[in-house]
Amino acid sequence: MKKMLLAVCFFALGLAACGGGGGDSGSSSAQPAAKLLKISMYGKPIVSASSTAVAHAQFSLISAAVAADAPNAASDAQTTAKSLTDALAARGVPASITTQVIDGTALHQIVTTEYNGKSPTPDQFKTDPSEMIVVNFQLDDMVTPSTDPAQEAAMKQFAADLLVFAQWAAVAGKYVLVVAPIQTCDTQYSAASGLQWALYEAFGNGAPLHFAGAVPDGFGFDTNGKPIPDVGTDLSHYGADCRSPDAYLQNALLDSVAKDIAAIYKESNGASAASDATPVSTPPTVSATSRAQQRQLS
């Protein structure tokens, strides 16, 4: 596949602290105010308003005002925004977060209607990122295994759409941070692993993405496709269907994303972020399952 080299600076977020007036107050201890970090969140809410994950709802494109026929999406989006704002504030990062809940179909509609499905030209990549987009996009169908032909086609379309979306976000001066999907244990060829493949495919084809977020649990599969949990992993966190992450995993993911965002913010302000995880500009190690899918889909 053709690779597009993007002249995008991933780290210059333009988030330097405000200078502060000081004036004639005579106070030498006054500290400059930290600049507000503007974040737009796109995709499935990371956490739910209730203690039970809403795992497979298919959402339409909605704003913070959200449509009346999607009360769960509205509540979960607000809960995620509030939880992430609080988690960042606890790490010394003032943030203003707006939410857009989007599924794969809505992402495709944005790309085709706003950008005519085309990537920007190389000369348009002139703006250093000054705002952040956190994306947690999902496939429309997060149940059907990734080996299904229709799901394979959806994954390929998703990867192509995300590439265009992220490139235009970079042109608009927005740093795109991708939330790593929680892998599910229903099958080694789960829809979640298909989503992971699609994210990596977009990145490999030139999407200016950074990856963030992780959960403490992990597992593999035996030769019969049965999940084998790592030491300390409790598969009950994934629900009776093994693909519905509970509040424990949701909160762990949100906390990890907050750490990564704080690390970016502190680094851009010249502060030490040694205690926080640093998001990677390359995706995490691809699992054997994802590599198999990559061979299959290439």
Rank of each mutant, 00 (worst) to 15 (best):
71 P>F: 12
135 V>H: 14
142 M>P: 01
59 F>E: 04
171 V>I: 00
229 P>N: 07
113 T>E: 08
296 Q>E: 00
77 A>S: 02
238 Y>C: 03
198 A>Q: 11
114 E>V: 02
55 A>S: 03
94 P>M: 03
56 H>V: 15
123 D>F: 09
12 A>W: 08
241 D>G: 09
40 S>C: 09
265 Y>K: 00
68 A>D: 11
94 P>F: 03
28 S>P: 07
160 A>I: 07
138 Q>L: 11
179 V>L: 03
114 E>S: 10
113 T>V: 05
226 K>C: 04
270 G>D: 03
117 G>I: 09
101 V>T: 15
193 S>L: 00
86 D>Y: 08
96 S>L: 06
284 P>M: 04
247 A>K: 11
150 A>W: 00
251 N>W: 07
239 G>D: 00
93 V>Q: 05
209 L>R: 08
224 N>P: 04
295 R>I: 03
47 V>L: 06
281 S>L: 05
179 V>W: 09
192 A>I: 03
119 S>P: 01
274 A>I: 06
279 P>L: 15
137 F>S: 03
95 A>F: 09
12 A>D: 11
24 D>F: 07
101 V>Q: 07
38 K>W: 04
100 Q>S: 07
178 V>K: 07
173 G>E: 00
165 F>V: 09
44 K>Q: 06
277 A>F: 10
139 L>N: 03
52 T>G: 02
216 P>V: 06
110 I>F: 12
190 S>A: 10
213 G>D: 11
78 Q>F: 09
72 N>T: 15
234 D>T: 11
1 M>Q: 14
223 T>W: 05
192 A>T: 01
196 Q>Y: 09
296 Q>I: 00
105 T>F: 10
221 F>M: 05
140 D>G: 12
13 L>T: 06
82 K>I: 05
67 A>N: 08
189 Y>R: 05
31 Q>V: 15
85 T>I: 13
145 P>G: 03
104 G>Y: 07
26 G>L: 14
1 M>C: 09
261 I>M: 10
95 A>I: 06
249 L>H: 13
265 Y>M: 02
11 F>Y: 12
121 T>N: 13
233 T>P: 01
54 V>F: 05
260 D>Y: 02
104 G>A: 14
288 A>Q: 10
253 L>W: 11
